[in-house]
Amino acid sequence: MAKLDSLLALPGALAAFEFRASGELLTQEIAPNAPLDPEILDLVCHMCAANMSICNMQTRGWEAITGMKGFFPVREFTLVGFDWSVVVSSAQREAQRAAGEPTLAPYQGVVLANPKADYEATFAALDK
């Protein structure tokens, strides 16, 4: 599982954080001068937890009807905001779930400044 400080080293990263499936923020690291605080991240986490669930519902339905596999389970959900994006990942949890582990890791997420955002590098870092 990626360390928060290594996620914060991603291009454009403003914050890295972990949260429960319920949306509750657990831990965070925020870059100096980033316009973020734990209260905002907690809102972000709740929103992303909701959308991760919605996307899993949608991709399950999509795969069942179309037979086009490769979307579910969703590894990352990204919200593209006006100035920044937030990428949240359940990749570690899904790997643990597939391995039959009794406890699952928290979700991880990164807030990125849009001009510098490298989405693919962020996915790869969160998938590790």
Binding site: I54, M57, Q58, R60, G61, W62, A64
Partner: peptide
């Protein structure tokens, strides 16, 4: 959401 539940 209901439209999608119905669809799926």
């Amino acid at each position: 959401q209901a439209d999608q539940v119905s669809m799926f």
